[in-house]
């Protein structure tokens, strides 16, 4: 008869995976609200909106962090003026960068060696052709490390800037089962609505609470007059169709593009503009 009492998994892989989850939970215990900013559609201004919402929340006295979950298109550090800082590994984890308005930032951008460096992974088997086997798992674990290993400290709100597409959202929900909710960003175009509708369905399927829908680039404002950019998409009607609270429309302001490129969230210097007021209102609703 086999002595099964001696059979034990010395590596305890399951135990290690469970310990990883526990480290995420322990870190998030110091964060009051975790909000994912998602779209499904790329190019809707989701990252710029995230940076501005973070700054708006900081203006309202909150302690805020931004986790840039867009591993291959990381931009949060640049938009919050935090590029050039180094991630320092300390006793309590990896110290996040400090952006404008003291927003704490963790992004893949902070790990890359130079301006042109793409995010590419060493092949753990020496076989580049097999990357499909492990890339998704590895990048899901990068997101886990961002959550668990960053020394966020005590935060009122952690905003997670999600990448385009809906697949990473399910990973996030597994890591953060008590996610406060997701903010959905669209632009007023039929194509955007088509893609965002699917992302909303995926988020619901993953069990996410949808906090609201923001219509970004809703017209072009020159400070006095707002010109329609997409005549066929009304965000308010779309929000009703998909049964998500409508939080408002943010007009495109050329100053927003300029300040974002300069690493200074627009809302800090243009809080009285139409776009600035809209961002502050949405932040207050969060």
């Amino acid at each position: 008869m086999t002595n099964h009492s001696a059979v034990h998994d010395e590596s305890n892989v399951l135990g290690q995976v469970l310990a990883q989850r526990e480290r995420v939970a322990a870190r998030l215990a110091h964060i009051q609200r975790v909000v994912a900013v998602m779209s499904g559609k790329g190019g809707v201004g989701k990252s710029a909106l995230t940076a501005n919402l973070a700054a708006a929340l900081a203006m309202q006295g909150r302690v805020v962090g931004v986790l840039d979950a867009d591993i291959h298109g990381a931009s949060a550090a640049a938009m919050l003026g935090a590029r050039g800082q180094r991630v320092v590994i300390g006793e309590n984890g990896a110290r996040p960068a400090i952006g404008v308005a003291d927003v704490r930032v963790m992004s893949m951008d902070l790990f890359l060696s130079d301006e042109d460096a793409p995010v590419t992974w060493g092949h753990p088997g020496g076989l580049a052709a097999d990357t499909y086997v492990w890339r998704g798992t590895l990048e899901a674990n990068v997101l886990r490390e961002f959550l668990a290993d960053t020394d966020w400290g005590e935060l009122d709100t952690l905003l997670i800037d999600m990448p385009p597409g809906a697949d990473r959202f399910e990973t996030l929900m597994r890591l953060v089962p008590n996610l406060s909710g997701a903010l959905v960003v669209t632009i007023p175009s039929q194509v955007s609505h088509l893609v965002v509708r699917r992302a909303i369905a995926a988020a619901r399927h993953a069990g996410a609470r949808l906090l609201g829908l923001v219509e970004n680039m809703a017209g072009l404002t020159d400070g006095e007059v707002t010109h329609e950019l997409f005549p066929n998409g009304r965000g308010e009607d779309f929000a009703a169709e998909v049964d998500v609270p409508y939080l408002g429309r943010v007009p495109f302001d050329p100053q927003l593009a300029r300040t974002t490129d300069a690493g200074r969230p627009f809302v800090l210097e243009h809080a009285e503009s139409a776009a600035g007021r809209a961002i502050l209102t949405i932040a207050a609703a969060l």
């Binding site: 991630v87 990896a94 790990f111 590419t120 992974w121 060493g122 590895l138």
Partner: peptide, 19 residues
């Protein structure tokens, strides 16, 4: 180690530093 996957697997190395 904190951020072990990122620091070990990022091709070209990472610029994270120990304190």
């Amino acid at each position: 180690e904190p951020m072990a996957i990122i620091r070990d697997a990022l091709a070209g190395g990472s610029v994270a530093a120990t304190t």
